[in-house]
Every structure is written in structure tokens, then in C-alpha cells.
Design a protein around this nucleic acid. Structure first.
Lengths: 355, 355
DNA sequence: CTGAAAGCGCTTACAG
DNA sequence: CTGAAAGCGCTTACAG
């Protein structure tokens, strides 16, 4: 494809066979004699001949390309997910195209069509809203896709998500175990699966512990650093400010750190903080953010696996509904000084996940 | 491409014209009457017909796909670069495939071929070593590509890089201005452009100020967090430990933070620290890392621009050699307490670059 | 095991 | 302005 504009016919000429036979040699077709194949492959090798993928794609109706749709590739969570997807895809001979939608429906639309235009074989959607018309349309058309990280409403698709409810519940319970009662949340929007489930898990944990939740303690916007900054500022300037903040993502937590430092407050002494995702930021020794691990790398590679199965077997099989277990990662940001007498100091895990 | 297996011929039948004419309508060919075009397009719209990109690609010898090669998409620097590339590519109707090489030549090779196989129109290499055989081969074959972030040796290609030497020089000078004399560096390898130039800038600044540099004060490995951790540990456990550390990237600096915290040392009180890249980590208010801004988003979009020009004009034009200016971003990690009497407290910039 | 033929769905000279 | 024809570089029944 690169330099040579050699074709299968040129090779055929040199090998004194038909181009059909060359094609067979290239594709390891059983109906070709070992020795002619060997002879042909030798020539192919010597000339560095590469069959033209475009022609191949056309007749095979396949591109070995998958499209990944995320909110923003710069978000460390998505970057890690993308890496998991890339590695697995590469293993099985696929390439991945990515795009960042910035939560904007029009970007979503335009990208989906751009990808469809290049002829991708399937999609991995990582950032859908609960109600996402473009995705629903693709599902109705049975276009191969898998949802990862966030599900949408309805049926008829495969997905891999984290048990967000459980993760949020556990980390909230942890704060409660440490003695916190006035706990606020700065979360992503309820219009997406992750935002909604984390809020629900949070609310449920409070309820199960008979702790009242003030409506003002719920702040929701995007899963962004800016949201964390604004949200924390608002919360911490209240007369009755919370003792602890549950940030719906580490990225939000990053903004909370910005705000507390700007306000001259200390974490965890003045306010406890926990996050969600376990990004590299969280594990930094100057940050030490208690958080929920998502294993997004794994999530990505499982997603690819399911998608490729679907693409290659063409069975309309919607039985791949994976819910990954969440893991609480305890570090110091949640405030040891608050812990219940007799409960023992929570174990502080060190550095990062291995990479 | 999605659902419909409609072809240009089906449309032709419905419009009672030849498929040639349909093709013309679709491609806005001047030699077609406005009204037949309108009639055809109406049908196309109504049926949601999309011409098959694979067939189009085959005859046009084009895919509207560009390949991006980075070390690791998880590295925030590359994620930001990728976003700049994506946005610009999208604007001009291209999709981008990415891959992470992990510094491994065999991954580099295998990915380059995988991408060539799908028929990309050009490459953006962001992580080449100074001597990179695969890239050199592509250059020799005149395959469209642009180097970004890191150049390789030799001629015959376009590139967009930062003035790494200057950036390193300036930030080192800044430490010197603050009164530091014992300054160490934890850098990436000299086998890559960025590692080498930053080391050179560092050395030159010391030399210009007649400050001696101990060989043990130079630590080089990958541009990774682990390198920062190990390097700082080694440096800070020396009997004659440095007063300041220049981390060759923010990612390395992240590891330095890990190490100082682990050793119970404070930044900037016990040791000053500066980085390179101005990632989000650096701008966090709990980190406040003095660093060098790279504007990698811009770097990426300029790279795309140059590449597309090359692809579409097919002129062998190697005059696009861009060296971007570096910008020193001063925050508190470089240690105000060390600053020279009378020099005034350096201005501390706040939060992030806008996004 | 091998080859001649048809076809994948487009684009683009070439004639009219 | 419109259409019949050739062709992009492959794969794959269909015969032999």
C-alpha cells in the first residue's frame, strides 16, 4: 500500500500463475499446493508486496476498523479505557478510530456519521446519555456496537459497565464509618448512567444509615474539573458546610482540591474528600485520594472482545451484559482524624495500579 | 453504509438516470444540471443513502484516515496532543487512528504496518527516536507524514516541535535566579529529541552561570512517573543532595512528588521542583508545579494542517519546519523561600490553560 | 490444485 | 448535460 503500486497481477506474472492463485496464497486458502504457495510467498516477501486493503475491504465488506466514542480523550479515565481498547484490538488485528464528543449531541452525530462513512465494522460507545437517539437508531438497525462505561435505557445491546451504585454506596459508607454525617456530593449529571447510579448509591447509603441529606448538598453538572471547583466552592462557603465531599469522579475531585486550596481549607482536616475512578492523579503521594477503582483498561478490552465476537460471528447475541465489581481504594484524603473510636485506622494503600 | 445496502444504481433506477449521473450529483460535479441534481439528491436524502466509502476509497486511492503514533495515549501530554489532532482532522473531514508504542520498536513496526494495511493517507509521528528506521523508510518512500513533538535526524520531512532547548534553559535559569546552585535533572533518554534538547538546555544554563554540574546529578530513563520516583529517590538519598530538581516532564515530576512525600521531604522547602509540559496535574492547586507550557493542542492541529496539505496537494514540499516558542509557567513548587534577596517574589500564575 | 469470469460499488475519461 | 464503458485491486463461486 505504501510505496509499491504492485498488484496481485504483477505477482502472478512473476510467479507464472493466475492472480487467483496469488490471492489464494496470500489468504492461506487450503486449496493451493504447499509448494506453489511457498514460491509465491517468496516473491511477495522479496518485493515487499502488500495487498491493497481498500480493494479487500470492498469485496469483503469489512474494514477491520472500530470506532470509539468518548466524551474527551484528555480525560484520564477515557485515555486509560482507550488504551485497553487499543491493545486488545491490536491483538486481533483491528485498528481503532476515536472521537471526543464533549457531551455535545451535534458532535456525537457528526462523528458517528464520519465513522460510518469510513466504513467501520463496529462501535464502542463509552459516553452515551441514558437516552441517546443516534445510538438507539444504530441498535434498531442492528449495527454492531457495544456500550461501555455507560449504558443507555432499553434492550437489545451488549455492555460492560461498573457497578456504580455499589461503588458509590461503599465509599459513602466508608465516610460514614469514619464518623462523617454531613456529607455532600458533587456529581455528573443524572442524564447519564454513571452520574445517576453514583447519586443513587450515595443517597441509599445515607438512607440506610438514617442520615438526612440536605438538598443543597447535592451539586450536579458535568464530570469536569470545573464542576468540582465551582461545586466545592459553593458547598464550602455555606454557613453549614459539609464535613465531607463525595466527588463523582477523580476529575471532579481535582477541581475540589483546587477550590479547597484556594479557600485555604485543608483536606482531610477541614473537609474529607473521596473520588471515583482511581486515576493516576488520585494515587499521587501528595494527593492520596480515597476513591473507587474502575479497572477501565479491562473494561475496554472486554468491550472489544464482545464487539469483535459480534462482528465476526454475526450472531445477534445480546447476552453479554457485564457488570464489573467496584473496589474501594482507601487513602488519606478521607480523613483519619474523623474515624470512629475503636474502628482502627483504615489501611492506606500505596501507589498506583501497576502499568 | 450502515443499514442500507442501496447502491448508486438503485438510486439511478429511481431517478431514471444513469448511475454515472447519480455519482455526479453526489460529488457536486459541475457538469450536471441543477435540477437533475436536486431531484437525485432529494431521493438520496429520503432514503438516507450513503455511498460506500470502501468503493470510493478504492478508485480514489484515498481513505481520509490519518494515523497517529504516540508512546502512550494515557500520558496526558499525548492525550492533549491527540485532541488537537482530532479536532482539526474532524474539521477537514478526516478520521484519526491512534496507537501507543510504549517505546518498543517492535510495537512501532507492527502498528505502522497495521495502519498502512488499512490504507491511511498519512502519518503523524509524535514519539520517534532520533534514529527511527521505520520512519526513515517511509520518508525515503515519500509516504506522507509529519513529525510532531520529536524530530528525527536527517532531512526531507516536515515537523512541528517545541523549542525544547530554550524551555529547559529558561526554567533552569529561573531556578538559578532563585538562588539554587545544586541542581539535578531527571530526564527522558538522550536517544529522543525532547530528552536530549532538555538536557542540553539545562547543561547550557548551568554553564552560562558558571555552575558546576556533578555527573551524579544527571538521571535519565523514560519519561515516566516511575523514572521520576526512582530518580528522585536516588538523588535525595545522596549525602550531598540537590537543592532543586528539574524533571524532564510533568509526568516525571509526578513521580518526584511521590518520592519526596515518601521520604518525608517537602516541596519547595526541602527541595525545589520544576517540570515540563504544563499538564493538568501541574496546575492543580495542591501541586502548583512550575513548568514549561507546550501548547500541545496547537502542535497537534498544526501537524494535521501540514499533513493534509501534503496529502492533498501532493507537492513534495518540506518547508514546514515549525519550532514553537516555549513559555515558562511559574508556580510555587520552585520554592520562593530560596529566591534571591531583592529579586522579588516571582509571580505565581493560577489555574489551568483554558479549555 | 488451478484458472477464466464475474462482481464488490464506486469514479472518470470518452463520446455524443 | 448525459450515458455506456472501462477500471480501481481484490475475492470467490464455477468449471476443469
Amino acid at each position: 500500500m505504501a510505496k509499491n503500486s504492485l498488484t496481485i497481477r504483477d505477482i502472478a506474472k512473476m510467479a507464472k500463475v493466475s492472480h487467483t492463485t496469488v490471492s489464494r496464497a496470500l489468504n492461506n486458502d487450503p486449496k493451493i499446493s504447499a509448494k506453489t504457495q511457498k514460491r509465491i510467498l517468496a516473491i511477495v516477501d522479496k518485493l515487499g508486496f502488500k495487498p491493497d486493503a481498500r480493494a479487500r475491504n470492498l469485496v469483503l465488506k469489512k474494514s477491520n476498523l472500530i470506532g470509539l466514542v468518548v466524551t474527551d480523550i484528555r480525560n484520564p479515565f477515557y485515555a486509560e479505557l482507550a488504551r485497553g481498547i487499543e491493545d486488545k484490538a491490536h491483538q486481533v488485528g483491528y485498528n481503532v478510530i476515536f472521537c471526543s464528543t464533549d457531551h455535545k449531541p451535534e458532535r456525537m452525530d457528526s462523528y458517528v456519521h464520519l465513522m460510518l462513512d469510513v466504513g467501520i465494522d463496529g462501535f464502542i460507545f463509552a459516553s452515551s446519555r441514558l437516552h441517546e437517539p443516534v445510538v438507539e437508531k444504530l441498535i434498531a438497525e442492528r449495527f454492531p456496537l457495544v456500550l461501555v462505561n455507560r449504558k443507555i435505557k432499553g434492550e437489545g445491546f451488549n455492555y460492560v459497565v461498573l457497578d456504580n451504585f455499589r461503588g458509590a454506596y461503599d465509599i459513602t459508607q466508608h465516610l460514614i464509618d469514619l464518623g462523617c454525617k454531613k456529607i455532600a456530593i458533587v456529581d455528573g449529571p443524572s442524564s447519564v448512567f454513571t452520574g445517576l447510579e453514583r447519586l443513587r448509591g450515595f443517597q441509599r447509603a445515607l438512607k440506610d444509615n438514617k442520615i438526612a441529606l440536605k438538598p443543597e448538598y447535592i451539586v450536579q453538572d458535568n464530570f469536569s474539573r470545573a464542576t468540582g471547583y465551582e461545586g466545592a466552592k459553593k458547598l464550602l462557603e455555606m454557613k453549614d458546610r459539609p464535613e465531607a465531599i463525595f466527588a463523582g469522579s477523580d476529575y471532579i475531585a481535582m477541581g475540589v482540591f483546587d477550590a479547597t486550596e484556594a479557600l485555604g481549607l485543608r483536606i482531610p482536616e477541614d473537609v474529607a474528600l473521596v473520588g471515583f475512578d482511581d486515576t493516576e492523579f488520585a494515587s499521587n503521594q501528595r494527593i492520596r485520594l480515597t476513591t473507587v477503582s474502575q479497572r477501565e483498561y479491562t473494561m475496554g478490552s472486554m468491550g472489544v472482545q464482545i464487539l469483535i465476537d459480534y462482528i465476526e460471528n454475526k450472531e445477534l447475541d445480546y447476552t453479554h451484559k457485564v457488570v464489573l465489581e467496584s473496589h474501594l481504594i482507601i487513602r488519606e484524603s478521607c480523613g483519619h482524624k474523623l474515624h470512629r473510636p475503636g474502628a482502627g485506622v483504615p489501611k492506606v494503600l500505596s501507589l498506583a495500579k501497576s502499568r
